[in-house]
């Protein structure tokens, strides 16, 4: 074995094998190198040492306990879950607010069809959609129950005595013979409910077309003659619309929904007749 190879192996820190030991015994220079490398190894083994502190184990167990607790809390509330959960809560809140706002805006519209489909007293129209008689329709109104509060603000429904959407209180009074000062009411105060785009509740029997007052009154079953300030009722046909509205012979019909009845043609649509009976001014509701 060559000296160079022996010294290279000795300096690398490798332990000499039997063949190397034999060479070292024979070679004084390599023996000194071996001794020197051995002493270096001995020196390194005497690098300073420390003893772990007495509370090493206790501190370690505290760390483990602490880490275990934090791991448990992470399991309960994982960041990966926290973010989607917050997003879901936020989304639900936004949807709830949007629903409330949407409901507030659309409540009258929702109530509208329910009112239109409300039963009309005396009517025997058959509901095409359900095949049931219109008297069954209160059930449909119950479907609009959640918006009842809004529906109560809608215009009066003629003839819908038991309907949740009752006619306006003033109309009730008029129907029962109450009187109002016609002079105090301007045409703008007595706007027909469908004139502003609200659902039309007047039955088809009252034609929405241009008629002369005579023709209009004739359709209501009223025969009248034009006098100064209005149409004097000559007769009222039994069971007619005019009769149900409470028009009597001798009444002076002055206006329809605030529109003065002269000889000129007018839109036949209307709900209220302003009349003078004797000395009293009255408004009668037309109930087809």
């Amino acid at each position: 074995m060559k000296c160079s190879e022996t010294r290279r192996i000795l300096r690398s820190g490798e332990r000499p094998d039997e063949r190397m030991l034999e060479h070292i015994r024979e070679c004084g220079a390599c023996a000194r190198v071996a001794e020197r490398e051995e002493f270096l190894t001995t020196l390194l083994k005497h690098a300073p040492a420390i003893d772990p502190p007495p509370d090493f184990d206790r501190t370690l167990m505290n760390k483990i306990e602490s880490r275990r607790d934090s791991a448990a809390s992470r399991t309960l509330v994982r960041p990966g879950i926290l973010v989607p959960a917050s997003a879901a809560v936020l989304l639900i809140a936004v949807l709830a607010i949007a629903f409330v706002l949407f409901r507030g805006q659309t409540a009258p519209e929702v109530a509208g069809p329910g009112i239109e489909e409300a039963p009309v007293t005396g009517s025997s129209e058959t509901n095409v959609e359900t095949g049931t008689n219109s008297e069954d329709l209160p059930d449909r109104n119950e479907m609009a129950g959640p918006v009842e509060g809004s529906a109560s603000d809608l215009p009066a429904e003629p003839g819908a005595g038991s309907d949740p959407v009752e006619p306006a209180q003033d109309n009730e009074q008029v129907f029962e013979g109450g009187s109002r000062d016609l002079a105090a009411e301007t045409p703008e105060d007595i706007v027909p409910p469908w004139a502003d785009g609200t659902p039309r509740n007047v039955p088809d029997k009252v034609p929405a077309r241009m008629l002369t007052p005579r023709e209009l009154l004739a359709e209501l079953g009223i025969e009248a003659e034009l006098e100064s300030g209005g149409w004097k009722v000559v007769s009222v046909r039994q069971g007619s619309i005019g009769s149900r509205a409470g028009v009597r012979k001798g009444d002076l019909i002055k206006a329809l929904d605030g529109r003065p009845l002269t000889d000129a043609p007018l839109d036949a649509g209307g709900k209220r007749l302003q009349i003078v009976r004797g000395t009293r001014q009255m408004t009668l509701s037309i109930r087809p």
Partner: peptide, 11 residues
């Protein structure tokens, strides 16, 4: 630091 890292190794 040595104590701390030794404990961390065991943890």
């Amino acid at each position: 630091e040595s104590i701390d890292l030794a404990q961390e190794s065991f943890v």
